[in-house]
C-alpha cells in the first residue's frame, strides 16, 4: 500500500479534497443524520423530549388521522409520477424524435422547447395560476371564445381537476429536459446503424421501436430516475399554485407539502411536530433512495453498449 506522505502530490490532493468533503459533511450529511435522530424523539413544541423509539414512525404510518393523510399524499405522488412519465417524458421523447428528424423549424424549436426549463418554478407556477383563473384566466376565456364555455371550470378549486392542472403546468415547464436528454441520446446513434436499418425497412414505427428506443436506453435511465426522485420530492409547483394545505381538501396534497406542514405547522394549525415531520422525511428519503437505486440497476441492465 503506497503511503500518502503529506508532501507534494499528497498535500495537493488533501488540500483539494478536504474543503468539499467538509462542506458536504456539514451541510448535507449532518442535517440528514440529525433528521434521522430527531425522528426518534418526542417533541414538545421546540423542546426535545424523551427518546421514544419508533413511535413517530408508527404514528405517521398507522395512527389515524395521520395514516390517512400519509396514504392520501403518497397516492398523489404515485399519480404525479405516472402522469408525468406519460406527459413529460413521453412528450419529451416524441419532441426529441421530431427535432432529431429535422422537421422544418427544428432549430427554432430546439431552443423554444428548452426555454421554460430555465424559468423559475415560482414564475411558471404563478403564470399557470393566472391561466387557470376562473374569471379572467386565459383557459376559460379561450374555451368561451370558441363556444366551449360549458367546459370552463374552476380548475384549481375542485378535486376532480386541481391535481391534473398542476401536473400539466409541471409538464409544460419541464418537458424540455427529457427532450434534450433524449435528443442527445439519438444524436449518439452511429450513422452506420441507421444506414443498415434503411436497407431493411422504410417504416418509421419499426425504426423508432426496434432501433432508436433501445439505443437511447441510457437517456431513458437518466430521465426516468430523475423523474422518480422529482415526483416524490414534489413541492414547489403545488406550493406555489395551491398553497401548503393541498387545497381543496387535500386533493393536491403530496408528501413534500404534508411533511412541511407536519414539521413546521401552517397558518391554521399551530402544531409543529418535528418528530413526526422528521419521521416522514426519513421515510421519504429511504423510499426514494431504495426505489431509485432499484430503478437505476434494472434500467442499466437493459442498456446496450455500442
Amino acid at each position: 500500500m503506497p503511503s500518502l506522505r503529506l508532501t507534494g502530490r499528497g498535500m495537493w490532493i488533501t488540500a483539494l479534497l478536504v474543503p468539499p468533503l467538509a462542506f458536504v459533511a456539514l451541510f448535507i450529511v449532518y442535517p440528514i443524520i440529525s433528521a434521522f435522530a430527531y425522528a426518534f424523539f418526542d417533541w414538545n413544541g421546540l423542546a426535545r423530549g424523551e427518546f421514544i423509539g419508533l413511535a413517530n414512525f408508527y404514528k405517521v404510518l398507522f395512527t389515524e388521522p395521520y395514516a390517512a393523510w400519509t396514504r392520501n399524499a403518497f397516492m398523489h405522488n404515485v399519480q404525479v409520477f405516472f402522469a408525468l412519465m406519460v406527459l413529460q417524458n413521453g412528450a419529451g421523447f416524441i419532441l426529441a424524435y421530431c427535432l432529431w428528424r429535422g422537421l422544418p423549424g427544428a432549430r427554432f424549436h430546439r431552443v423554444a422547447v428548452f426555454l421554460p426549463v430555465v424559468l423559475s418554478t415560482i414564475i411558471v407556477g404563478y403564470l399557470f395560476k393566472l391561466f387557470y383563473h376562473p374569471l379572467f384566466g386565459v383557459v376559460n376565456i379561450s374555451l368561451k371564445a370558441v363556444g366551449l364555455g360549458f367546459l370552463a371550470q374552476p380548475w384549481l378549486g375542485q378535486a376532480s381537476t386541481a391535481l391534473w392542472s398542476i401536473i400539466v403546468a409541471n409538464a409544460w415547464h419541464m418537458v424540455g429536459f427529457p427532450t434534450l436528454v433524449f435528443l442527445a441520446g439519438m444524436q449518439r446513434i452511429p450513422g452506420e446503424v441507421l444506414d443498415a436499418v434503411r436497407m431493411e425497412t422504410e417504416s418509421e414505427w419499426v425504426k423508432v421501436t426496434k432501433v432508436v428506443w433501445p439505443l437511447v436506453a441510457p437517456s431513458a435511465t437518466v430521465v426516468f430516475t430523475l423523474l422518480f426522485v422529482g415526483a416524490f420530492n414534489w413541492f414547489e409547483m403545488p406550493y406555489v399554485m395551491v398553497g401548503l394545505d393541498g387545497s381543496p381538501y387535500g386533493s393536491t396534497d403530496v408528501l413534500g407539502l404534508y411533511f412541511y406542514r407536519t414539521a413546521f405547522g401552517n397558518q391554521s394549525s399551530a402544531a409543529q411536530d418535528f418528530g413526526a415531520g422528521s419521521a416522514l422525511a426519513v421515510l421519504i428519503f429511504l423510499f426514494v433512495a431504495v426505489v431509485a437505486s432499484v430503478i437505476t440497476t434494472r434500467l442499466r441492465a437493459r442498456e446496450i453498449q455500442l
Binding site: 394545505d245 381543496p248 381538501y249 387535500g250 391554521s268 394549525s269 411536530d273
Partner: peptide, 23 residues
C-alpha cells in the same frame, strides 16, 4: 380548537371546501 392535531380549523376548511365542491 387549534390546540391539537388535527386542528378544528384545518378540518373545517377542508370540509367546507368539500361542501362547496358538492362532495
Amino acid at each position: 380548537f387549534r390546540y391539537g392535531e388535527p386542528s378544528g380549523s384545518v378540518l373545517l376548511q377542508g370540509e367546507v371546501q368539500k361542501l362547496l365542491d358538492n362532495q
